[in-house]
Design a protein around this nucleic acid. Structure first.
Length: 610
RNA sequence: CGGGAUGUGGCGCAGUUUGGUUAGCGCGCAGCGUUCGGGACGCUGAGGCCCCGGGUUCAAAUCCCGGCAUCCCGACCA
């Protein structure tokens, strides 16, 4: 049973003495699982008088907000910016935050994870031991104490939790274990933007599983994966799980949960007919059969193309399209020069390229080119003499000759034929997937959409447990490193993603599960209506409904506009005309649908128990 | 880190080009009155280190120099 049923409300404060605006506790008769109408499961019967709520809605859009979610969260008084990428969460925003947190907490608990609180201030020494101090680099906020011991603000917590588990557990009998926390994280982003969508301080749920072996890890991972689907579903998000690259965290298998959104910062590939889906970084395609141009094509022709090192420029100059050109991307692998060959309208997928070699692959930078004048930057062709590796994507097997760099500054070549004029040393799917490419599993056309990464699950393996000494003894008395997984959910980011999906031109339309209140009760002008609304508010509170009660002495238009902006799912309007007929009006925020409820039935109907 | 833009009451903005009274408008806020089912109207009022520091000048929101902050675009694809 969640803690708040025993006297702690979802805002986290123990309700011993209530302020005048927090009334009528009486939540005990609404049990968990008693899902009642539009009412949030976490309703506690809080009645908030709007005249007392710390809230100032804005009529104008804030000048620095680009996205709808950012605009509306600021206009509605949910958040306020303090510094770039740093936000205050005002009472309304905090209520939403607590709702998301509670959903996450319930699903984590149900999946068998145990909640902890790990420090935000972490010794840098721990990060040096795992080798991630360098990997994170300037992304970490760093600080020193008075003794000049170096610390960082937690960007995540693998080091701390692994060290903790290493110190406490040492037997196979202790495993599996899954620890999680919901805590603030700090990343000094290159460019914070879009309000709380990419901020430098953000609330994240991070869980860490420890198992004896890979089978155990798979079980823990699957449990987290299933819990994540429940969390995002309960939050009202349209999402897709996609195969991902692991990035700085490390490890092998990882999957991202993308909230589908046109404004999303990440692109992902998905198949129309099977369930293949992957981040564009991790996506691949089926090998394209194709057929090269015939050998009897005209011989290559040298062209003078001064100051045109870019694909677009050359294509325009030669009055052709980028897909008639070949890109030859120079890379370094173990000190040897390699070329990655793709058509001019495609990009090289660095991760796919890297996977082909035992040593790390590094694309050459401007500095490399400056240091190696023998490389004609922008004019390298697939037949460049110094290249040890020439890796071509299957899309290079097109039935026409190619235009490529002539291996000399200011010159290109037209009419280069695959097999006759150049031959790759290796074929591999190294191009970033384009829409329409064949699905690697079933061959159906792939599609590309954008999304907001709201969750990420990783199978880490033993990277951290080995580095930080988290070993266990098996039943033969042998020592092994524990096998680890880690699992993150962006709590504050979910809120932005939800607003992106659930809003219209008037404001936010919260899914019931996340709404700061269940009912937005609007009293129309007049002593009688106010008295009737007052009575209804009190009864609703007593029935366990969370009510935002607009009893302000202001004009109706202002109240309606604010109600639509704030986005509580159900608006109840107590007006003189309706009252004369013994009814109040109900409007559903998301659909605009309206109906009337007899005053006598209002509490039972609105509490969802009629 | 590179490029662009902006910084003027709580919010949105004008004024800066061409230096010159008590720095202005809308929203919001306070008071009074009329209004009251979709961001009303009238009158009155409070609230400003014009981002900061230096300089030029009789005189700086305005010109010059140097910082800082915020937003946007880009940040190895040849």
């Amino acid at each position: 049973m969640p803690a708040f049923w025993s006297g702690i409300n979802p805002t986290g404060f123990i309700e011993i003495e209530r302020s005048p605006c927090f009334r009528a506790p009486a939540a005990s008769h609404i049990g968990p699982g008693d899902r009642i109408g539009s009412l949030s499961e976490m309703a506690t019967g809080r009645v908030m008088r709007m005249s007392e709520l710390f809230l100032r809605t804005l009529r104008d859009d804030p000048a620095d907000a680009e996205l709808d979610s950012h605009r509306l969260l600021v206009r509605g008084g949910f958040v306020r910016r303090v510094a770039s990428g740093v936000y205050s969460w005002l009472p309304l925003g905090n209520l939403v935050l607590r709702k998301v947190e509670q959903i996450v907490r319930e699903e984590m608990d149900a999946a068998g994870a145990q909640e902890t609180v790990l420090p935000i201030i972490q010794p840098l020494e721990l990060w040096e031991r795992s080798g991630r101090d360098a990997a994170y680099g300037p992304m970490m906020f760093r600080l020193q104490d008075r003794k000049e011991t170096r610390f960082c603000l937690a960007p995540t917590a693998e080091e701390v939790v692994t060290t903790l588990v290493a110190a406490e557990y040492s037997s196979y009998r202790d495993l599996p274990l899954n620890l999680y926390q919901i805590n603030w994280k700090y990343r000094d982003e290159l460019r914070p933007r879009f309000g709380v969508l990419r901020s430098r301080e953000f609330l994240m749920k991070d869980a860490y599983s420890f198992d004896a072996d890979l089978d155990g890890l798979q079980t823990s991972y699957d449990a987290m994966y299933a819990a994540y689907q429940k969390v995002f579903t309960r939050c009202g998000l349209t999402f897709r799980s996609v195969k991902a690259q692991s990035g700085e965290i490390g490890g092998d298998t990882s999957q991202e949960f993308m909230a589908v959104a046109a404004v999303g910062e990440d692109a992902f590939v998905w198949c129309e007919s099977c369930d293949y889906a992957a981040n564009t970084e991790a996506a691949t395609k089926q090998e394209l059969a194709g057929s090269p141009a015939p050998d009897d094509a005209p011989a290559p022709e040298r062209l003078h193309t001064p100051d045109l090192p870019g694909i677009e420029g050359v294509a325009k100059h030669l009055k052709t399209k980028p897909n008639r050109l070949l890109k030859s991307i120079a890379f370094d692998v173990d000190g040897e020069l390699g070329l990655a060959i793709v058509p001019g309208d495609r990009e090289v997928n660095e991760f796919a390229l890297d996977a082909l070699f035992d040593h790390e692959v590094r694309l050459l930078t401007d500095a490399d080119f400056a240091a190696r004048p023998e490389l004609p930057k922008g004019y390298i062709g697939p037949d460049f003499p110094g290249a040890k590796y020439v890796v071509a994507d299957s899309s290079v097997r097109a039935p026409h000759p190619w235009i490529t760099g002539a291996n000399e500054i200011d010159h290109h070549v037209r009419g280069l034929v695959l097999g006759r004029d150049f031959t790759p040393t290796q074929w591999a799917e190294i191009a970033v997937v384009a829409p329409g490419d064949p699905c690697p599993r079933c061959g159906a056309p792939l599609r590309i959409d954008r999304g907001i990464e709201v969750g990420h699950v990783f199978q880490l393996g033993t990277k951290y447990t080995e580095a930080l000494g988290a070993h266990y003894t098996d039943d033969n008395g042998d020592q092994h490193p524990m096998v680890m997984g880690c699992y993150g959910i962006g709590v504050t980011r979910i809120i932005a993603a939800v607003v992106e999906e659930h809003h219209d031109e008037h404001g936010i339309a919260w899914p019931a599960a996340l709404a700061p209140f269940d009912v937005h009760l609007i009293a129309m002008p007049g002593d009688e209506t106010l008295a009737a609304a007052e009575e209804l508010a009190e009864k609703l509170g007593a029935a366990g409904v969370d009510v935002l009660f607009d009893e302000r002495e202001t004009r109706p238009g202002v109240k309606f506009a604010d109600a639509d902006l704030l986005g509580v799912p159900v608006q109840v309007i107590v007006g003189a005309k309706g009252l004369a007929r013994g009814v109040v009006e109900r409007k559903r925020r998301a659909t605009g649908e309206r109906d009337e409820i007899p005053v006598a039935d209002a509490v039972t109907v609105l509490a969802g128990r009629s």
